[in-house]
Design a protein around this nucleic acid. Structure first.
Length: 953
DNA sequence: GAGCACTGC
């Protein structure tokens, strides 16, 4: 397959598309020339009032589309072809019977999903584990032999020292006698490795090993593997005997019975799609359930239904001590058992102690940046801002500071600083002073771990430390640690430092749970954390810096006591510590719910009806799935997600899954990315689209360099190859990585992570497997030429990107100096383009339209500049209107384009035709037959050589 | 004019 990276086919786009001048796009850019004096003032007042209303921009067409006469003629010829009638026949939709769909495996599965219900499905649930006495005896025999194995006995000796071991008999008895048990305990108590083994050994010893099949879920892939390896080692076995693991794209399954399988929470949820009663499982252990991620919250909600029908299924919830009671309450006050933790003591200090020891002086006022210091007005504003105190100061923090002053244990200047809210801001100079104090005054040696909220702070502190001259590289190794930095995959960070050197790690909360560095003795906790939230009013995602929860603070503190007693410095006062909330909000209250709803639909759970549905049905459904969650999300959030799924055509008007929705629910990615991939398969440009969708869904392979930022930016621009698209860069990177003679060299030169690139390659293959199950492709090779006939046509690739990202469309506005870009949403809100986007640098501004995936805090992260036609073809709410000699195409009730009547008419027919084609393809999943005479190609073709759609887009 | 918490199928 030749997949040259060029855009030759774009030139074939024949239609004339003109961009309007500024006045045309924004009719109110400047005041009409005939106005004078106060009229001008009133004009602008009216204009800003309009802006404030955030009115739609219907009346500001984004451009004009005119097809040439020759093209019009050819398209008209095509439109008279007979194949259209055939397609209309195929796609006459009947939502209740779907009688227009030919009988197929897909149809039967789809109908059983939209008509069925979880409870009915569970009513004939039963365990599939059968007791086989011969095997039971053999399991016991092997187990007894193992107890003589010196390796096993040595490991066993170590196990008996764990706190969990003292509770062995209690645990086994409690689990035997109850269907649901909550096991709580802090890290280091051994519950994760021991509890599954206690259960398994108990079954084997009682000659019923074949009835025992334990699944233990972990929130992260890495912990599923490491725990499985550890447990296999303790049992003196290799993986694949009685212990195994399963994560996406990687598994080592244990034997079918008498076994323990560690897997990620998502794997088990996916399994429930086909086997909701978990028929081949005897014990389900959910570990780290206190983290409250969407998947585990979702899982326990369904499990409450499942255990009613499967009385023999045991559920063990393992949580931190802090919120074990809440889980017990959720399961009808099921019994709890607590295992004391086993960690070294960590001495805790707070801001007042740090200030006292370092004699540091916090700034009293916000200093404006140097370039603004001349403006006194702005400066006063800064001073004013610094004096506004959060409400908790009067109630808690000031009284505490006054008490300290009275007690006389702290210097007066320390107490005074505590009363100033600025002392709670992140202050990297204070951290530097504290580091100097630790390294020179504290006797203990050992690694220092600093928690900061984000990259900015990590970068600033890193610079400050290296430039201070107090931490020469002969004595200190400094590791910045962030999910997007190369250091996360370096072994060096886990290993003891070279002799005579000390490790300093500057990390985000990645070091709280995901990455464990054993030799940490000192922790500096800035007390802040970046938390993403979903804002219902603006229907958008935010990422803000907040106070940590007590759970976070404890976890951070615990990182200091893994090998010996440690010290933790919190950079906030004891008073602040007292008013921290216990936990962060559960994730399900902080995210978009569209993906959750699709999964729930596939699992046939009862869901509420959206805003638009009639009230009768609304009131019928009081006890729906979302109400049963431990923390039900706001209904507005559910409605927003339902609306979004309807716009994507994943749900029909009665909120049943459509055939498209059914496919999207089965694909392991969000609905928009799933749609992009399906269209990539249908339009035969699958490899580039899979690269892009996988990267957006998982993670960018680009790594951040603290020292070579500019170089990294330039490499990105180089990879963009003049195309105004961040998405096509992902395609190009994965493409080159696959064919490069020395992939590792390519990664080094272009600041890429080969670890992530390899994962992305595996993931693409994994998606191919799903597409094959859905019957859209014929194998698992993403580069199969059969599915890449149009992969060289980057205009088409961009059109498919657009189909997937819609309705995330925005309009580009240049500033007058054209130095930077502003973005306007169809709803007339203004955003900015993230500085790393190549669109800032590649000035190929033929089109003012962008499609994007992620928008966080007013910033659009990755974007592609697109032609209007894909938006017109793939957008919803198509309308054509004609009045005052103006033809207008309107999309999504907000984007408008001018088109003369004959062009408008043709676009409308072409759009219908393509939708029929897609509908047919979705309801009759199969590989598109690109043969010259095939029916489906005739539908899209306007002459024998060229496929209409592929060239039009 | 200016910046990106962390997971997962």
């Amino acid at each position: 397959m030749s997949q040259k990276f060029n855009e030759q086919h774009t030139k074939k786009v024949e239609e004339k598309w003109t961009e309007h001048s500024d006045d045309d796009k924004e009719p109110y850019m400047s005041h009409p020339p005939n106005l004078e004096g106060w009229q001008i003032g009133r004009y602008y007042a009216g204009k800003s009032a309009k802006k404030a209303k955030k009115g739609r921009v219907k009346d500001c067409p984004l451009g004009t589309i005119i097809f040439s006469e020759a093209k019009t003629l050819r398209i008209k010829e095509m439109l008279t072809s007979k194949s259209l009638d055939y397609l209309i026949y195929l796609c006459e939709t009947d939502n209740h019977t779907y009688s227009h769909i030919r009988d197929s495996a897909f149809k039967r599965q789809f109908l059983s999903i939209i008509r069925g219900n979880l409870i009915d499905k569970l009513s004939n649930a039963s365990s599939e584990l059968a007791q086989l006495h011969e095997m039971d005896t053999s399991y016991l025999k092997k187990f007894k032999e193992k107890q003589k194995n010196p390796k096993y006995t040595a490991m066993y000796q170590g196990r008996t020292k764990l706190p969990a071991f003292k509770e062995k008999d209690n645990l086994v008895k409690l689990i035997e006698e109850n269907q649901v048990v909550v096991v709580s305990g802090e890290t280091g108590c051994g519950k994760t490795t021991q509890v599954p083994q206690f259960i398994l050994d108990h079954y084997i010893e009682n000659e019923k090993g074949t009835l025992c099949r334990i699944i233990c879920t972990q929130p992260r892939r890495i912990s599923a593997i490491t725990v499985a390896e550890r447990v296999a080692e303790e049992r003196a076995e290799s993986l694949g005997e009685s212990v195994g693991y399963q994560i996406r794209m990687e598994k080592k399954m244990p034997r079918k019975s008498g076994s323990i399988c560690f897997c990620t929470t998502g794997v088990i949820l996916k399994q429930m799609e086909s086997d909701p009663s978990l028929s081949n499982i005897s014990h389900l252990i959910l570990d780290e359930i206190h983290e409250r991620d969407v998947t585990s919250d979702f899982l326990i909600t369904i499990l409450r239904e499942v255990i009613k029908k499967r009385n023999d299924l045991k559920i063990i919830l393992m949580s931190a001590t802090l919120n074990s009671e809440a889980f017990s309450n959720y399961f009808d006050n099921c019994p709890r058992i607590n295992i004391p933790g086993f960690t070294f003591t960590v001495t805790e200090y707070f801001l007042e102690d740090v200030l006292q020891r370092t004699k540091f002086q916090c700034p009293r006022f916000h200093l404006p940046p140097p370039e603004q210091r001349s403006s006194i007005k702005k400066w006063t504003n800064y001073r004013y801002k610094s004096l506004v105190k959060p409400p908790e100061y009067e109630e808690y923090i000031e009284p505490y500071a006054r008490k300290l002053l009275k007690d006389g244990t702290y210097a007066a200047s320390v107490c005074e600083q505590l009363e100033n809210p600025l002392s709670e801001n992140i202050n990297i100079r204070l951290i530097l002073q504290l580091l100097i104090y630790i390294c020179h005054k504290e006797e203990q040696n050992g690694a220092i771990l600093i928690f900061l909220p984000g990259l900015m702070d990590i970068s600033d502190l890193h610079k400050l430390i290296t430039n201070s001259g107090k931490f020469p590289s002969e004595e200190y190794i400094i590791f910045p640690l962030h999910s997007q930095m190369a250091t996360v995959n370096q072994k060096q960070i886990f290993e003891p430092p070279p002799l005579g050197k000390r490790k300093i790690i500057i990390a985000t909360n990645i070091a709280e749970t995901s990455i464990t560095i054993d030799d940490v003795v000192f922790v500096i906790d800035c007390g802040k954390i970046k938390i993403s939230n979903f804002n219902i009013e603006s229907n958008s995602q935010t990422l803000n810096c907040e106070w940590v929860s007590l759970a976070n603070a404890n976890q951070r503190r615990g990182r200091a006591g893994r090998v010996k007693p440690g010290v933790c410095f919190h950079l906030y006062s004891r008073a602040r510590h007292m008013i921290l909330k216990e936990f962060q909000e559960p994730e399900v209250l902080r995210v978009r719910l569209d993906d959750v709803i699709l999964t729930a639909k596939l699992l046939q759970l009862d869901l509420p009806f959206g805003n638009g549905s009639d009230d009768m049905r609304h009131t019928e459904m009081q006890n729906h799935f979302f109400q049963k969650l431990m923390d039900p999300p706001k209904m507005e959030c559910v409605y927003l997600a339902l609306d979004c799924l309807k716009r994507l055509n994943a749900l029909d008007d009665s909120e049943n899954l459509t055939p498209l929705g059914y496919h999207l629910a089965r694909l392991p990615m969000g609905p928009q990315m799933g749609k992009m991939v399906l269209f990539g398969a249908i339009f035969s440009c699958l490899d580039p689209i899979l690269s892009i969708a996988t990267t957006l869904d998982f993670k960018s392979p680009f790594q951040i360099s603290l020292t070579l930022e500019k170089e990294a930016d330039m490499k990105r621009v180089e990879l963009a190859d003049g195309k105004a698209s961040d998405h096509l860069i992902f395609h190009r990177v994965l493409y080159i990585h696959d064919i490069h003679p020395i992939p590792y060299k390519f990664c080094q030169d272009y600041f890429l992570s080969s670890y992530i690139l390899n994962l992305l390659r595996d993931m693409k293959k994994d998606f191919m497997g799903y597409l094959q199950d859905l019957n859209f492709v014929s194998g698992t090779d993403p580069k199969n030429p059969l599915h890449n006939r149009n992969s060289d046509n980057l205009a088409l690739v961009k059109a498919v990107i657009c189909a997937g990202l819609y309705p995330n469309v925005a309009v580009v506005k240049y500033s007058k100096s054209k130095k930077f870009i502003r973005i306007r949403s169809p709803e007339n809100e203004f955003f900015k383009l993230h500085p790393v986007s190549v669109i800032n640098k590649v000035r190929d501004m033929k089109a003012p339209l962008l499609v994007y995936w992620e928008k966080i805090n007013e910033y659009i992260h990755d974007a592609s500049m697109v032609h209007p036609l894909p938006i017109i073809f793939f957008g919803d709410h198509y309308k054509y209107t004609f009045h005052d000699h103006n033809g207008l195409i309107s999309i999504g009730n907000s984007l408008t384009f001018r088109a003369n009547p004959h062009t408008g008419k043709i676009i409308e027919e072409l759009r219908d035709r393509m939708n029929w084609f897609l509908e047919n393809k979705i309801t009759h999943p199969s590989i598109v037959n690109w043969d010259v005479d095939s029916d489906e190609i005739n539908i899209l073709r306007y002459d024998l050589k060229v496929n209409l759609l592929v060239n039009l887009l």
